[in-house]
Amino acid sequence: MLNTFQFQTSHDIPATKRGHERCVALLESATELFLSRGYDAVSLDDIVNHAGGSKASIYKYFGNKDGLFKAICDYRRIQFFEDISVTCDQKSIDLRTNLVTTLLNFYSHIQKPKNASFMKLIMEQGQRNPDIARHIHENGPLKIQQVVADSLKKAHESGLLYCENPLYSAQLYFGILRNLEWRIIIGVPLEQDDQEVFKYISYAVDRFLDGHQKG
């Protein structure tokens, strides 16, 4: 993780392992404080006192509090990709299984209370700051949609399905989870158990694939 995280919003990229560890400590401490107290109630002094180090490190690597929050979103996006994309590079797994498993992993990820709380925090900060909203959208949903779109494009080129607009199809694909995702974010109890969710996702993926066959 330390080697792959690029600190895209930083002013100065850490050059050493210790520097990376210091940055990750700041990100994790800030995340914990933001989730427990709320973004506005947490100061940079609070973060430094919790993580150790100095405010100079925050200014050096992230610029300011908003820059730190963007970096947290980048950091958690990488963790999110690791959580849901376990099967993407396993060529022995068929396309349907890959699509079903990705959505099941997505569902499992957003069900975790800390992840659901962070999604709420993202929505709040996106409404507060259009620049943050744009950064999150371009480096979050758009990136994962593009990953799926690339897979659908390859499947189209190999004749596994007919997909003339992979990006549109990727957006449609993630819409399968929209109702469940929204209920989790706003705190409405889910009526389905895990087995019912599996049946629903399997059914929806089958209909998705049916719609990508040549008539």
Rank of each mutant, 00 (worst) to 15 (best):
L142Y: 05
V86K: 13
S117I: 01
R77W: 14
V86S: 00
R96W: 05
F106M: 14
F80A: 09
H109F: 15
S151V: 11
G140S: 09
N64V: 12
F81V: 05
E124A: 07
I72V: 14
Q79P: 00
N115W: 15
H137V: 05
N64Q: 13
P130M: 02
L99K: 12
I84Y: 11
A155V: 02
N98I: 09
A116E: 10
L121S: 11
L180Q: 04
R134S: 08
Y59I: 04
E181Q: 01
I78E: 15
A71P: 02
I144N: 10
I93S: 08
K55A: 05
S85E: 11
F106D: 14
S169P: 01
G175A: 09
L160R: 09
R76S: 04
G63Q: 11
I58A: 02
A116P: 06
F81T: 05
V100K: 11
H135L: 00
Q127D: 06
I122W: 03
L121K: 07
G159D: 11
N64C: 14
K153T: 08
D66Q: 11
K120D: 05
D94N: 15
R134L: 07
L99R: 13
T101P: 00
E138G: 01
F62C: 04
L161M: 13
P166D: 14
R77S: 13
N105H: 12
G67H: 10
Y162S: 15
L177K: 03
F81R: 14
Y59G: 08
I136R: 00
F174G: 07
D89P: 00
V147F: 10
D131M: 03
V148D: 02
F69L: 15
L95V: 07
L160Y: 09
S92D: 15
F106G: 04
C88T: 10
S169Q: 13
T97K: 13
K91M: 03
P166Q: 14
F69Q: 06
R76W: 08
E164A: 12
L177H: 03
S108P: 00
L167K: 12
K55Y: 05
H137R: 05
I110L: 06
L103W: 12
D83F: 08
W182P: 00
K70A: 02
A170W: 06
Q90R: 12
T102Y: 04
V148F: 13
D74H: 14
S169Y: 03
E181K: 00
L104Y: 08
E124P: 00
A149W: 04
K153R: 13
R77C: 09
R134N: 05
S92V: 15
G126M: 01
I58N: 01
F118S: 06
I78N: 10
S108W: 03
S158F: 04
